[in-house]
Amino acid sequence: MNQVELLFYGGLLIVIIGLLGVISRKNLLSILMFQELSLNGVNLVLVAGSILHHNYHGAILSFITFIVTAAEMAIAILILLLLIKKRKTLDVTFYSELKG
């Protein structure tokens, strides 16, 4: 299987690992890292697409995703700082009072 399919399946694999990581990890910070990972995985798929179709749409979009994920993670980590100051813990299970 040629390079493009390799890239495609590689990216897909990374996305799946990222999502599974989000579900399984306990620490909030690691959850955020895994989400970052899944977003980057998608970039790989996009780049594979643009190689296959010889146009730059995929590349532009992957470039924009970098910006967006960076912005998102920045705000997310800031909020995490606030949480640690207030709740002194990063364990996800503690953040489950709102229910019903």
Binding site: V22, I23, V92, Y95, K99
Partner: peptide
């Protein structure tokens, strides 16, 4: 039905997947 929202975030993401 209301038990569906049990507060854990990971349960929500799991539900989506």
């Amino acid at each position: 039905v209301t038990l569906l929202t049990n507060g854990q975030i990971q349960w929500y993401v799991l539900l989506i997947l």
